[in-house]
Simulated scan of single mutants.
Amino acid sequence: MVKKVLKFGGTSVGTTERIQHVANIIKKEVSEGNKIIVVVSAMAGKTNELIKLSNEISEDFSRRELDVLLSSGEQVTCALLSGALNKINLKAKSLLNWQIPILTEGDHSNARIINMHIEKINENLENNYVVVMPGFQGISKNGDITTIGRGGSDATAVAVAKILNADKCEIYTDVDGVFSTDPNKIPVAKKIDKISYDEMLELSSLGAKVMQSSAVQTAMIYNIPLEVRSTFTDRKGTKIFSQENIDYTKSVTGVAYSKDDAKITVIGVEDRPGVAANMFEPLSKAQINVDMVIQNISSDQKTTDITFTVKRDDVSKTKNILKDNDKINYKEI
């Protein structure tokens, strides 16, 4: 008997027909004697639809209420998939984040999973139920619903695999695995059969959308074997594991790019020791991920320009933090 975590992304569950197809994939796994925990995303486009609705109410919509709103997408998928499994005579039960519960800490829309109560999950597995769980969300120590960022269902799946000591974690998506670059942009892109955690972490942090970087990092720390595969074909996917198991015969594994980054330049910053730390520490505390940093050489030895990149969604928040920071002096942003 193998305990598996299967994660299905938004395109995999994008329609009721696709949800029924996913149910048949799970049925095959159960027929092989495996214990199955399923983590699901919202149906394709649903999260964007909910964000649009919140913006119609207010452009400054409450982060707390936005988490409540967005978490409903995965709950819909949980119920539909559980119903589809029941229809084909499989015992299945959905467990929502607050029913388990999945415990998180951190800001709304950017929380992280710190623990999970496994009693209900194990009880249902022992009674031969397929457990269907929502990805992307949890509950704080204050009882508030939280979300863990776009792509967070991957992080949920890996956390479940770690806490439940699953034998394998499989990420189902709309492509056959991890490719050397985006096959939609570069038709000659090749599928990678095996890739190390380090390489996958680098690709995902640089814009490859097939897996969330924090999920890869967790899998690497706890040595959880991953496989990325297609929901729609029976082809073998890409296996992700530790570097010593990779036979390197190539110098470049893949190329990634991102269209979700924004560049911020702080002009005329007082050039003195510690100014960069004073600038970036408040951003870190606000859970803003600063990526590339470039500091120009000061010609007058008094001021310099500092340029860095953040995610587009964090631009406004970053500028406000910089403007409120009385530890740095500058001319303009």
Rank of each mutant, 00 (worst) to 15 (best):
N329H: 11
V275G: 00
D193M: 10
I51A: 04
A286L: 03
L70C: 07
E123Q: 14
E332A: 12
N97S: 14
N329Y: 14
L85T: 02
I88D: 05
L203F: 04
A84I: 06
T307Q: 11
P282D: 07
N110E: 11
Q295N: 14
A157R: 04
A92S: 15
Q137C: 09
S82H: 07
N245M: 10
W98V: 04
I221M: 15
R272E: 15
D60F: 12
I294Y: 12
I51C: 10
V228F: 11
K194R: 07
L90H: 06
I163E: 02
R112G: 03
T173P: 02
N48I: 07
V293G: 04
L203N: 00
G152C: 10
S205C: 04
I221S: 13
V315E: 01
R18V: 07
S12P: 02
V130R: 02
H108L: 11
A276V: 14
D234T: 12
V255P: 00
S31T: 06
N122A: 05
E119P: 01
I163F: 15
V310I: 08
P183G: 15
A155Q: 02
S205D: 05
P225I: 03
I246E: 06
T11W: 01
S214C: 08
V160E: 00
A157S: 13
I100Y: 02
I148H: 00
N127F: 06
D291T: 08
I118V: 12
L322K: 02
A79M: 11
V160K: 02
G45N: 15
K239G: 09
W98L: 08
A157Y: 07
G237F: 01
K141V: 13
Q20P: 02
G106R: 04
D193N: 15
K302H: 11
V175I: 14
E270F: 06
R272F: 09
Q295G: 09
I224C: 06
T303S: 07
F179I: 03
E119H: 03
N122Q: 14
N296M: 09
F280I: 13
E29F: 05
D193I: 13
C169V: 15
S299I: 14
S31V: 03
V39N: 08
K27R: 12
K190D: 06
I121C: 03
S71F: 02
N24T: 12
E56F: 12
F179T: 01
N48M: 08
V255F: 10
T231A: 02
A166N: 10
I306K: 04
N89M: 06
F308V: 08
N110W: 01
N325K: 12
N122K: 13
